[in-house]
């Protein structure tokens, strides 16, 4: 995508965010609404300037957003699955799975190395948070009762 089109979209998104924020804030009581409402308008105006500037003299050179799509998307995707699994499998099982699978997904093939590193790492996290600090972390659903 060219820089121009990106900036038009960017400015548009911010302008829309600003306007909706201003619209919502207009409903707030008295002084508590004035400030967010004006901020909303300021964002809308600045967003519009970004978009208009891009229309008038935006460069038509392409600008990369994702440097390497497969790796970036894999990381974000597996990261999202990880966060979704934390409340189900519990923090430690989900984390161990993440440390084991993500390097492999990115093309790391030294399985023993991965396994040992994952074990040491999860062990350290466990010692710090569960043993020393005694912080309650999400537990697997089948254990919480």
């Amino acid at each position: 995508m060219t820089e121009r089109r990106q900036d038009i979209i960017l400015g548009g998104v911010f302008a829309a965010t600003g306007l909706s924020a201003a619209y919502i804030a207009a409903g707030y009581r008295g002084a508590s609404g004035i400030y967010p409402m004006s901020l909303g308008y300021v964002i809308a105006i600045l967003g519009a300037i970004v978009a208009i500037k891009a229309m008038l003299r935006g460069s038509s050179e392409p600008r990369e957003i994702i440097r390497k799509a497969p790796q970036a998307l894999l990381t974000v995707g597996i990261g999202a699955i990880y966060l979704a699994l934390v409340p189900i499998l519990g923090f430690y099982i989900a984390s161990a799975l993440l440390v084991l699978t993500l390097p492999a997904a990115l093309g790391f093939r030294r399985l023993l190395f991965t396994f040992v590193t994952a074990a040491i790492f999860v062990g350290i996290v466990w010692v710090i948070f569960s043993v020393i600090l005694e912080k309650p972390l999400p537990m697997p659903v089948w254990i919480s009762y």
């Binding site: 923090f91 984390s95 440390v99 390097p103 093309g107 190395f113 996290v125």
Partner: peptide, 26 residues
């Protein structure tokens, strides 16, 4: 000295645990 691809999930885990313990919510 760890391979970068190993650091990726490890930092993610630390981010998750650090953020979770602030307020204890997913």
């Amino acid at each position: 000295r760890l391979p970068g691809v190993m650091l990726v999930p490890m930092i993610l885990v630390l981010m998750a645990v650090g953020v979770y313990v602030i307020n204890g919510r997913v």
